Amino acid sequence: GNAVQEIMIPASKAGLVIGKGGETIKQLQERAGVKMVMIQDGPQNTGADKPLRITGDPYKVQQAKEMVLELIRD
């Protein structure tokens, strides 16, 4: 079955996860074999953390989460 996890991405790092024209998030999805969606909560909310929703095989979702956390670590 499918697992769904959401991680909060600091607004300052959201661009890093998505990448230029969505390149990075696309590569992450391909590498991890999961679906990732950045939940954009309207323009008034630009400074707030953005939830990144990861959907897929539970094991792969976990892997994907680690990859993203690695990416946004300072």
Rank of each mutant, 00 (worst) to 15 (best):
residue 8 M to E: 04
residue 11 A to E: 06
residue 70 E to F: 03
residue 71 L to S: 04
residue 47 G to N: 10
residue 18 I to C: 06
residue 25 I to A: 03
residue 20 K to H: 10
residue 6 E to F: 04
residue 22 G to F: 05
residue 31 R to K: 14
residue 34 V to K: 00
residue 26 K to H: 04
residue 68 V to I: 11
residue 44 Q to S: 10
residue 24 T to R: 12
residue 33 G to Q: 09
residue 8 M to C: 03
residue 33 G to W: 01
residue 16 L to V: 14
residue 58 P to Y: 11
residue 70 E to H: 07
residue 8 M to S: 06
residue 24 T to V: 11
residue 21 G to A: 12
residue 10 P to L: 00
residue 55 T to A: 06
residue 2 N to E: 15
residue 29 Q to L: 02
residue 64 A to M: 02
residue 28 L to F: 04
residue 41 D to K: 13
residue 30 E to R: 14
residue 31 R to P: 02
residue 38 M to W: 11
residue 15 G to P: 05
residue 46 T to H: 09
residue 51 P to R: 13
residue 42 G to S: 14
residue 62 Q to S: 09
residue 28 L to N: 02
residue 71 L to I: 14
residue 36 M to E: 01
residue 50 K to D: 02
residue 30 E to L: 11
residue 72 I to A: 04
residue 12 S to F: 04
residue 70 E to T: 09
residue 48 A to G: 13
residue 8 M to F: 06
residue 17 V to M: 07
residue 6 E to Y: 03
residue 27 Q to Y: 05
residue 19 G to F: 02
residue 70 E to C: 06
residue 10 P to G: 02
residue 71 L to R: 07
residue 25 I to D: 03
residue 68 V to G: 02
residue 24 T to K: 13
residue 14 A to M: 14
residue 62 Q to C: 10
residue 38 M to K: 02
residue 41 D to L: 07
residue 55 T to Q: 12
residue 21 G to R: 13
residue 70 E to L: 04
residue 18 I to H: 12
residue 74 D to H: 04
residue 34 V to M: 01
residue 44 Q to C: 07
residue 32 A to K: 04
residue 67 M to P: 02
residue 25 I to M: 14
residue 40 Q to L: 08
residue 62 Q to T: 12
residue 37 V to F: 08
residue 7 I to H: 00
residue 2 N to W: 11
residue 72 I to N: 02
residue 2 N to C: 15
residue 51 P to G: 10
residue 51 P to Q: 06
residue 53 R to C: 06
residue 5 Q to E: 15
residue 36 M to D: 01
residue 44 Q to I: 10
residue 26 K to D: 06
residue 44 Q to T: 14
residue 17 V to P: 01
residue 13 K to G: 03
residue 14 A to S: 10
residue 7 I to A: 01
residue 17 V to E: 02
residue 46 T to V: 13
residue 72 I to M: 12
residue 49 D to L: 09
residue 44 Q to M: 13
residue 36 M to A: 04
residue 60 K to R: 09
residue 29 Q to E: 11
residue 66 E to N: 10
residue 25 I to S: 02
residue 19 G to W: 02
residue 59 Y to D: 15
residue 65 K to F: 03
residue 11 A to R: 06
residue 50 K to F: 05
residue 10 P to D: 03
residue 71 L to W: 04
residue 29 Q to M: 10
residue 29 Q to W: 03
residue 20 K to Q: 14
residue 66 E to F: 04
residue 15 G to W: 13
residue 40 Q to E: 08
residue 1 G to I: 15
residue 63 Q to A: 12
residue 40 Q to T: 09
residue 43 P to I: 12
residue 74 D to S: 06
residue 54 I to Y: 00
residue 35 K to T: 07
residue 60 K to Q: 10
residue 45 N to K: 13
residue 33 G to C: 05
residue 16 L to I: 10
residue 24 T to S: 08
residue 8 M to N: 08
residue 49 D to C: 09
residue 73 R to N: 13
residue 26 K to F: 05
residue 18 I to E: 11
residue 36 M to W: 00
residue 60 K to V: 02
residue 40 Q to R: 09
residue 55 T to H: 07
residue 68 V to D: 03
residue 23 E to D: 10
residue 44 Q to A: 12
residue 25 I to T: 03
residue 9 I to M: 03
residue 62 Q to L: 08
residue 4 V to A: 03
residue 7 I to V: 10
residue 37 V to Q: 11
residue 53 R to P: 00
residue 25 I to G: 01
residue 12 S to P: 13
residue 7 I to N: 00
residue 59 Y to R: 14
residue 27 Q to H: 13
residue 5 Q to K: 14
residue 35 K to A: 06
residue 1 G to D: 08
residue 15 G to M: 15
residue 69 L to V: 07
residue 71 L to Y: 04
residue 34 V to Q: 00
residue 48 A to H: 10
residue 56 G to W: 00
residue 28 L to T: 03
residue 11 A to V: 08
residue 74 D to G: 13
residue 8 M to K: 09
residue 48 A to D: 15
residue 56 G to T: 00
residue 45 N to T: 11
residue 31 R to V: 06
residue 53 R to F: 06
residue 12 S to L: 06
residue 67 M to W: 05
residue 47 G to I: 04
residue 56 G to A: 00
residue 2 N to I: 15
residue 22 G to H: 05
residue 46 T to R: 10
residue 36 M to R: 01
residue 29 Q to N: 03
residue 23 E to C: 12
residue 41 D to G: 12
residue 31 R to G: 06
residue 50 K to A: 11
residue 20 K to F: 08
residue 48 A to T: 14
residue 13 K to I: 12
residue 63 Q to N: 06
residue 19 G to C: 02
residue 4 V to L: 09
residue 54 I to R: 00
residue 16 L to D: 09
residue 62 Q to A: 13
residue 13 K to Q: 10
residue 12 S to Y: 05
residue 74 D to T: 08
residue 57 D to E: 14
residue 13 K to C: 13
residue 66 E to K: 13
residue 30 E to G: 06
residue 65 K to I: 10
residue 19 G to D: 04
residue 56 G to Y: 00
residue 3 A to F: 15
residue 73 R to C: 13
residue 43 P to L: 09
residue 69 L to M: 15
residue 21 G to N: 15
residue 74 D to Y: 04
residue 52 L to A: 01
residue 67 M to R: 07
residue 52 L to S: 00
residue 44 Q to P: 13
residue 20 K to I: 05
residue 20 K to T: 10
residue 10 P to W: 00
residue 66 E to G: 10
residue 9 I to Q: 01
residue 52 L to E: 00
residue 21 G to E: 09
residue 9 I to N: 01
residue 24 T to F: 06
residue 66 E to W: 04
residue 34 V to R: 00
residue 62 Q to R: 09
residue 11 A to L: 07
residue 2 N to K: 15
residue 35 K to M: 05
residue 16 L to G: 04
residue 51 P to W: 08
residue 54 I to N: 00
residue 34 V to F: 00
residue 39 I to V: 13
residue 61 V to A: 04
residue 4 V to G: 05
residue 38 M to G: 03
residue 72 I to D: 02
residue 44 Q to R: 10
residue 45 N to P: 09
residue 26 K to G: 06
residue 61 V to T: 05
residue 74 D to K: 04
residue 51 P to D: 03
residue 67 M to F: 06
residue 42 G to H: 07
residue 22 G to T: 03
residue 28 L to R: 01
residue 65 K to R: 12
residue 71 L to N: 03
residue 67 M to A: 11
residue 1 G to F: 11
residue 71 L to V: 12
residue 52 L to H: 00
residue 69 L to D: 14
residue 25 I to Y: 03
residue 64 A to F: 01
residue 11 A to P: 14
residue 17 V to F: 14
residue 69 L to G: 12
residue 49 D to R: 05
residue 57 D to S: 08
residue 12 S to M: 08
residue 43 P to W: 12
residue 30 E to A: 10
residue 29 Q to D: 01
residue 13 K to Y: 07
residue 42 G to D: 08
residue 9 I to E: 00
residue 19 G to R: 02
residue 17 V to N: 01
residue 63 Q to K: 13
residue 23 E to I: 09
residue 54 I to T: 01
residue 26 K to W: 04
residue 21 G to Q: 11
residue 14 A to Y: 10
residue 16 L to R: 07
residue 52 L to V: 05
residue 66 E to M: 08
residue 32 A to S: 12
residue 15 G to F: 14
residue 68 V to R: 02
